[in-house]
Amino acid sequence: MDRGLVGSGSRGRLRVDVQRHGASAVVKPAGELDYHTAELLRQPLEQCVADGLARLVVDCSELEFCDSTGLNVLLGARLKAEAAGGGVHLAAMLPVVARVFEITGAEAVFTVHDSLDAALIE
């Protein structure tokens, strides 16, 4: 397993796509979100808020793993988005990822949706 630095072989373990959907940014991480890949998600989340898109919808449908570092990235994004008048909405979490949020109690501080469509209509 590659445990290199961000920018090395680790980059292939997490892909992040960002699309604008009205007043929201839809951020879609795919792969493993952990200590080695967290910066790959932190940067686009912070850039969205800096660009005035404070309503962040994180499409978790292809997020296969999330550890405490990944959770902290999302919590940090939530604070920045809320400070800018928005928030972070999590959509379509796979059970393995949802379990991390359940165990830590983090699901209570995010708006969680069953699907991306549900997150976008609110």
Rank of each mutant, 00 (worst) to 15 (best):
R55D: 13
M93W: 08
D67Y: 07
A30K: 02
S61M: 03
A38S: 15
L5K: 14
N72L: 03
S68H: 05
E62M: 08
T111V: 12
C60R: 06
A98H: 13
D114E: 15
D117N: 08
I103T: 03
G105V: 07
G105L: 11
L41N: 10
C60S: 06
A77Q: 07
V57C: 12
K80A: 10
T37H: 09
V27Q: 07
Q19H: 12
L56S: 03
G9H: 08
V16D: 01
L45A: 05
H21D: 11
N72S: 08
L120R: 11
M1K: 09
A25V: 04
K80T: 06
L63Q: 00
E107G: 10
I121G: 08
E39R: 15
L63Y: 00
G31Q: 02
R20H: 04
L56R: 09
T111K: 15
T104C: 03
S8M: 12
R42P: 12
H113A: 03
T104Y: 02
G85T: 09
G31C: 04
A83C: 05
R3I: 03
G105Y: 10
L75Y: 01
D114V: 01
R11K: 14
L74S: 09
S61L: 05
C48A: 15
V18Y: 01
Q19W: 06
A38H: 09
R99L: 01
E62C: 06
F101M: 08
V57H: 11
E107M: 05
L74T: 08
V73K: 11
R13D: 08
A54K: 08
L45P: 13
P95S: 00
L71R: 07
R42F: 11
L94R: 15
D117L: 07
K80F: 02
V18E: 01
H36C: 12
G31I: 05
K80N: 05
L5F: 12
D117M: 06
L63G: 00
G70I: 01
T37C: 11
L94H: 09
C60F: 08
G12I: 04
S10N: 13
V57L: 13
L33M: 08
E32P: 03
G85C: 13
V26E: 05
L45E: 10
L14E: 04
D2H: 13
G12F: 04
D59A: 04
E82L: 09
R3F: 13
R42W: 14
C48P: 10
L116Q: 05
V100H: 03
A25W: 04
T104I: 06
L63D: 00
D2W: 12
N72G: 09
E107C: 01
R78K: 11
L56F: 08
L79Y: 04
L33T: 06
E82W: 03
L14F: 02
G12W: 04
